[in-house]
Simulated assay, not measured.
Amino acid sequence: MSGGWLWIVAALVLGALEILLPGWILLGTAIAMGLMGIAILSGLWTAGLPLTLVAIAALSGLCWLALRRIFGSSRGDVRVWTRDINDHK
């Protein structure tokens, strides 16, 4: 039963690291670990560690894609121009 709390603590640690190292790298994994901790504590998830790690990996990818969709790309991304303003057609 205490395994859920370990996942929640790990999620909080990754969330704190995300504040120190911004870049959206750890946030998806932190959200996935938090959701998994809640699922374990509520009894919705009873599988062993290997399947739990696979589920966290899949959830973190989905969380990262959802965050990317909601908040968009960062302003530091490179923009590729396909047409020059000086080209008159």
Rank of each mutant, 00 (worst) to 15 (best):
H88K: 13
G61I: 07
R83M: 15
I8D: 03
T52F: 01
K89H: 14
R68H: 09
A32S: 04
A66G: 07
T82R: 12
E18Q: 11
W5Q: 07
G3K: 10
A16P: 09
I40R: 03
G37K: 01
I70T: 12
G23F: 01
P50L: 01
D77E: 14
A58Y: 01
A16T: 15
A30N: 02
G23H: 02
A57Q: 04
G28S: 03
F71Q: 08
P22H: 04
L21A: 14
A39D: 04
A66K: 06
G43K: 02
L65W: 10
D87N: 10
A10W: 06
R75C: 09
A39L: 07
D77L: 13
I31K: 02
V54E: 01
E18M: 09
L65F: 08
M1K: 11
I40W: 00
L35I: 08
L67F: 09
R79W: 08
S60W: 00
L26A: 08
S42K: 13
A55W: 01
G23Q: 01
I70W: 11
G28T: 03
L12E: 10
L44H: 12
L67E: 03
I40P: 00
I40N: 01
S74Y: 13
L35P: 04
S42Q: 07
T82A: 11
A55I: 05
G37P: 00
G43R: 00
G37C: 02
W7E: 04
F71K: 10
V54G: 02
D77S: 13
S73Y: 12
V78D: 11
